[in-house]
């Protein structure tokens, strides 16, 4: 584990070299929040009105949180990186190092996301407060649980991107698959909470990774209930375990099929 923490630390050190990129990315994030703030401001006739159980304030804070996860993980880049590693055979150069490729990519990506996470959560919180003038009422324990859930969501989402990237061992190019997965998460859990969809879709979404990588922590932040928190945390731990195991299975099966020609 120590070596993975070192990978994590090295990636933080490395990403500190281009911290200004994160600040520029924040402009894009700010635009998203600004658009949705105006959209929901227009839809809600009065701030106390509830749409599918969400007040205007909850709705905006929901997007503030889910967009942070979305931007911090940025899974498309990671999936492309792994897919390219598999296609070009570069993945093999990690094989003769005494670490697991999945662990290396996970901790390296989390390290890269850590600086982004702090920037976006602080600036995102400030933007949310600026627009709404209030923040959801959470005590310190509830806040700690939300943060744990957020970290788990980012970790699982990263693992999902790694898993899809590793599918390149079978389907040659898994980027289109990640595009579909990314759009499903974006629509069904990031810009709209699950409750906004028909019952049948809700059932599917609650069983899918969307429940744990996007909806879960944001729902806890805007409407904390201990029962929901337990459900979400248990689901996250199960997902974490299952997706990690699938990644390892895919990697171990895949490396046996590697063809690296030349240089």
């Amino acid at each position: 584990m120590k070596k993975y923490l070192f990978i994590y630390k090295s990636e933080i050190m490395s990403s500190l070299q281009y911290i200004e990129n994160n600040l520029l990315n924040f402009l894009g994030y700010f635009m998203h929040i600004f658009i949705f703030f105006n959209l929901w401001d227009y839809i809600y006739s009065n701030p106390e009105e509830l749409i599918n159980g969400y007040s205007k304030c909850q709705m905006i804070w929901y997007i503030v949180i889910t967009e942070v996860i979305w931007v911090v993980v940025g899974g498309r880049k990671l999936c492309r990186l792994i897919s390219d590693d598999v296609k070009s055979g570069n993945i093999s150069y990690n094989m003769n190092k005494p670490y697991s490729y999945v662990g290396y990519r996970l901790f390296s990506h989390l390290g890269e996301g850590t600086i982004k996470f702090f920037i976006f959560i602080v600036l995102g919180g400030m933007v949310g407060y600026l627009f709404l003038g209030e923040i959801p009422n959470l005590n310190i324990i509830q806040l700690v649980i939300v943060v744990i859930s957020l970290i788990l969501a980012i970790t699982i989402q990263t693992l999902c991107s790694i898993l899809i990237g590793l599918l390149s061992f079978i389907i040659e190019d898994s980027n289109p698959l990640h595009w579909v997965y990314g759009k499903a998460v974006l629509i069904l859990g990031t810009i709209f909470p699950i409750e906004f969809f028909p019952t049948a879709v809700q059932k599917i979404a609650k069983l899918s990774p969307i429940y744990v990588v996007s909806y879960g922590p944001a729902k806890l932040f805007v409407d904390f209930e201990i029962k929901t928190a337990l459900n979400i945390l248990v689901a996250q731990i199960i997902y974490l375990f299952v997706v990690y195991k699938l990644c390892m299975l895919m990697y171990n099966k895949g490396v046996k099929r590697i063809n690296v020609n030349g240089g």
Binding site: F6, S10, S14, Y18, P98, Y99
Partner: peptide, 16 residues
Amino acid sequence: HLTPMDNFKFFAAIYD
């Protein structure tokens, strides 16, 4: 983005 020194420390950690 890291210096050779940081890289060497990284590899030392990788190799326990």
